[in-house]
Design a protein around this nucleic acid. Structure first.
Length: 418
RNA sequence: GGAGGGAUGCCCGAGUGGUUAAAGGGGACGGGCUGUAAACCCGUUGCGUAAGCUACGUUGGUUCGAAUCCAACUCCCUCCA
């Protein structure tokens, strides 16, 4: 990696954000001489972003911290088409109402990472539905479509891989890259946007946008991608056992978010600290060099810092405290563990453990709960459950007023009577 | 529109009339070892307390008995027009 003059590129480079860049030297010069508006697009396919998008969000954060203007593009329009990049099959099409509500959910997160406003380096959030929905087909074909060659489009991974694997690719999806390219040009016109960033799977879409903007607006714009992030275990970033690591607190409690980072693979700690926290690099180097069990300290720092960024100082501290109580001190049922309430009357009569595990969301069915017990992984108030016909009653309520159910060593739920 | 091929559990994939709740692999989950890690080892992996029920694209049929045979339909792929 060359030495960059601009704080922006230097930071991204040092922290491991850069995979490819269209013209790094020219972009560096541009970023050194004034505020650069840059955008990243987010599809509205789910009601929340997950940890897989965090690299992009952090990149926007650094952009702003180093004196530039972040543009968050919500893909209200493009989501109606569906990005084929990196997918073998077309995704189910979402209707407008679902897209609307997804956008509302996704928006929440950005204000934690970026400062929005009207100033030159304040972040703005726009929705490409604003200019895509009203497009007129024939006009669009004449003005935009003529700049695209099918020969070239077919060579892009997003298309080529589908064809090679004999997976269907609809004409609708085929057009996605054109619309995304058009977005870039439109953002350049409207907001002077000069840079699009994204994951490495977006490279094709991004360079198309760079080309189109040059052809139609005669403007030089840039593209930059992040490396495809996987954990050392080979898993995709942001996916775990239990599902996606959602950023919205109502979809994944801060405690679970904290746990996600705390459970990072040893080999990932340094990389994650650089990407997902704002700690300075010297400190990260120190943490990263910890050996053996000591690296757990680094994981706690990572979990604290990452949770603080997303959920705030207080939530991060509570999560850390709960984790300490749960894992270090063993017993105690900390108040911040996930909690369900059960009707007091039912509890007085006694409730079967199996159904209680299902109600707590620890197992998907009674059968699964039974297996869990048989495998010795089910605990009630930290005592192994041996009998799957056991009844749980008021007598099981511990001193703190709740019953603690555990599935394995890491998943715990408190049951409170109401 | 025509011809051919296909659809099996979370995923991949075997199975072409009976002991098939369906081989094998992956994933996931639990246990062991550890450091709430990785690797490794062991176990589990449709629902139901059970009788039993549901399941191999959908619907109907043949049969004592079907994922397996037949018919129609749906969707996908390839080639031709």
């Amino acid at each position: 990696m060359p030495e960059f003059a601009s704080a922006f590129l230097r930071t991204l480079s040092e922290r491991g954000f850069i995979h490819q860049c269209t013209d790094a030297a020219a972009l560096d010069a541009r970023a050194s001489s004034g505020a650069v508006p840059a955008y990243i697009g987010f599809d509205a396919t789910a009601p929340s972003l997950h940890a897989g998008s965090l690299v992009q969000i952090m990149m926007l954060r650094w952009l702003q911290q180093t004196g530039h203007k972040p543009i968050v593009l919500m893909g209200g329009g493009t989501t109606r088409v569906g990005d084929p990049s990196g997918k073998d099959e077309s995704r189910q099409l979402l209707d407008d109402a679902a897209i609307e509500s997804n956008i509302a959910g996704i928006k929440q997160v950005f204000s934690r990472f970026l400062n929005f406003g009207d100033g030159p380096t304040d972040a703005i959030l726009v929705n490409n539905d604003a200019w895509l929905r009203g497009l007129r087909y024939v006009d669009f074909l004449r003005e935009v479509g003529r700049h695209f060659s099918i020969n070239r489009m077919l060579s892009f991974d997003s298309v080529r891989l589908r064809l090679e694997r004999e997976q269907p690719l609809s004409f609708l999806e085929f057009n996605y890259m054109i619309l995304q390219a058009y977005d870039f040009m439109e953002l350049n016109r409207r907001h002077g946007c000069a840079l699009q960033m994204g994951g490495s799977d977006q490279w094709g879409n991004i360079v198309n946008g760079v080309d189109l903007t040059r052809r139609m607006s005669d403007a030089e714009v840039f593209g930059l991608t992040t490396p495809l992030l996987t954990t050392a275990g080979g898993a995709k970033m942001g996916k775990t056992a239990g599902g996606a690591v959602w950023l919205n607190g109502d979809m994944l409690p801060p405690y679970d978010y904290w746990q996600y980072w705390r459970n990072a693979d040893d080999a990932d700690v340094g990389r994650f600290l650089r990407l997902f926290t704002t700690l300075d690099l010297a400190e990260i180097a120190r943490l990263e060099s910890l050996q053996g069990a000591e690296i757990n300290e680094a994981k706690k720092v990572l979990a604290n810092a990452a949770t603080r960024l997303l959920h705030g100082e207080e939530a991060a501290e509570r999560a850390a405290k709960t984790a300490a109580e749960t894992f270090v001190e063993g017993g105690g049922a900390s108040a911040d563990l996930p909690t369900i309430s059960v009707d007091g009357g039912r509890l007085a009569e006694g409730v079967g453990v199996l159904s209680l595990f299902v109600e707590a969301g620890l197992t998907a069915s009674n059968g699964e709960a039974r297996r869990l017990i048989k495998n010795g992984g089910a605990r009630l108030n930290d005592e192994k459950i041996a009998d799957d016909s056991r009844q749980v009653s008021m007598n099981d309520i511990a001193a703190n007023g709740a019953i603690k159910l555990s599935a394995g060593k890491k998943k715990h739920v408190l049951v409170r009577p109401n």
